[in-house]
Nucleic acid binder design. Sequence first.
DNA 1: TCTGGGGTCCTAGGACCC
DNA 2: TCTGGGGTCCTAGGACCC
Length: 438
Amino acid sequence: MNELTHTDHQVPDAGGMPSFADFTHWEGPAIGLMDLDAFFASVEQLDHPEWRGKPVIVGGLPEERGVVSTASYEARPYGVHSAMSSAQAHRLCPHAIWTRGHFDRYRAVSAEVMAILESETPFVDRVSIDEAFFDVTPGRYSSEDPVTIARRIQERVAALGVTCSIGLGCNKTVAKIASERDKPRGLTVVFPGCEERFLAPLPVRAMSGIGASAERALKHAGIHTLGQLAQAPLARLTTIFGVNAEAVKLRAAGREQSVVKPFDAPDDVKSVSNERTFAEDIVELDDALAALALLGESVGRRLRRKGLVGRTVTIKIKFAYGSGKTMQRKLPHPTDDENLFVPVAQSLLTSLWSPGMHARLLGIGVSDFDTAGGIQTDLFCEVDERGAMASDRRELSVAVDNVRERFGAEAVTFGRAARFGGALVRPDKFLNQNKPRE
DNA sequence: TCTGGGGTCCTAGGACCC
DNA sequence: TCTGGGGTCCTAGGACCC
């Protein structure tokens, strides 16, 4: 696996800097960030050998107002990148192989990768399907050299058929920025004590948490680099970052103290939502209400699977001309039952709907979860008193969930949602069927 | 034919209570 | 009748991430 190490380099690049050989042991915290390279596209190429070496794009289809989720490295020279509209990507790279993606498959490969990390250290902080921090501080779990562990992780991941890039440093901010330095299959190490020299020359935008808006505000204040950000007066930064100003300064200076939680810590989700952009705008309130019901079914199913009951329902609408709106309402009781939260969402939508509206996107979500959780079965017995899902209806819902798990989401739908069945895929057809009857 | 589908976190204003 | 603050809850919106 020599190719895994040929991209290794120590940072900063200039001469006189420490090299791997200078570090016989690592001082202080060692935190890594592992990022799977072009992950979705790589899994597609793994599963379709005939796609290897060719531009592959995972994302919504150009004719569906979709966007690019992941472009394989072969597609990137054409200028195709994540979040670009699929229509534009299609213009740039017309011969690309296109797929909407296979998320169950990505989740399965991700789980294998995470298991590798977990076998190397119990302190693994999964941040997304293709990214995780891991703590390999010598002495915390093992005393092995962090660079050696990082190299081994890369080899073991590569054996699965996908590759990853790793950044290694004294905290999460440094590790994350380092991981982006050299892709794909890169290993970038910022040795202890080199943080400031590594970070200072970088543009502020390199640090996660600083987006277009903060970058603009900082530029206005004459702050362009992380070095300047680390030196800036706190009062100045408070007007931009509010309560986070001090933490931002510390991170920019490379002096943040990161905590990597154990892998098996409970995942504390804060909200569960579902939204869809329609290939054609929805113009009738009835259709919008039906779409909301269908979107809500999946939210309810996911809440039940996770054992969560939420107190707040939120709807989201985006209009054809670009603006959007969200509304939320607190529910009388926490629930995981779409029969209870969807009607509330529908009444919110009805209250803001006016004739002539063109909705390009609708969404529904549930948040503000009961901290007691809905996992325990005794909770099921209390739901009647609390006004949540009645037990017989809950049994029905759980049964339906099981059918869906085995036969797919389209196997069972209720009432209006059934009429809307294929609409999320082909709303044009649906809208034609449901034209007002006059 | 520009702009998806998940999420998290923060801010600010109004209602309401003391 | 006019006037406070402080605290908390609810709601809307926006920045940011992958």
